[in-house]
Design a protein around this nucleic acid. Structure first.
Lengths: 118, 118
DNA sequence: TCGATAGTTGGCATAACAACCAATAAACAA
DNA sequence: TTGTTTATTGGTTGTTATGCCAACTATCGA
């Protein structure tokens, strides 16, 4: 994998990385329903406003969200609604993972690679 | 965001996080074309085989890939082909991000939030 | 002008991640 | 049995991410 190809994947991976956090995924799904200001999101999430602001700036940097200033408030919106299409696949995978872990617990005689590490 | 909802997003986010690395994204796209053993992927990627093996175990843990032992080789395959659908959206976003950065460089009089930090 | 509200940024401590090397295990050929 | 190939795991080191607090900026109402 040379530098050029690596850069190609770097750009995509940084977007996926931006989506790889529960709080940020929550923000994305919420903005899929309605535009929100930082204060509303902070209220829903229950973290420090500076923490939420930093999550939003990571999403902004990745091009997932965009914002608009209105008075003292910053109104965020989804800039790339196509990411909402990821959720269906993600939910299927979460379900499959749970299923796999259950199967693994049932016949734990033979290891199946889904053991919980200690 | 209570614990239950947080857990819900945690499961999805860990899958996105697993995809949030250039090497792992490369592996996913390559496995979308054909099943591969670790040695083939290592050859393509050009990293230590232990590094590639660890990337694969992260993808396995997330339920993105699966493997099958054949002699001394481990043959990996895509367990969740739906992730291939992510790429189109990712590429659109990368293009949009590049476009945005170009615009930003052109009229750098007013900051637009895409400045490169030093 | 002064104070209150809304957000962003810097700093810091802690935690998680990444990549290599070394050691080990499994399959198989000689 | 011994050596080779393939792959995983442990250990180490350096980098990056996370979340809070504190400091600061901007807008707006009194």
């Amino acid at each position: 994998m040379n530098q050029e190809i690596r850069d190609r994947y770097e750009g995509r991976a940084s977007i996926m990385k931006a989506l790889g956090h529960p709080t940020r995924l929550f923000i994305v799904e919420e903005l899929g329903r309605a535009n929100r200001c930082v204060c509303e999101l902070t209220e829903m999430i229950g973290a420090d406003i500076s923490t939420v602001s930093k999550h939003l700036s990571i999403l902004k940097q990745a091009g997932v969200v965009d914002f608009e200033k209105r008075g003292t408030q910053m109104h965020y919106r989804l800039a790339a609604p196509c990411v909402l299409n990821f959720f269906h696949c993600l939910e299927d995978m979460v379900r499959a993972n749970v299923q796999r872990q259950l199967l693994c617990l049932q016949n734990d005689a033979q290891p199946c690679g889904c053991e919980v590490k200690e």
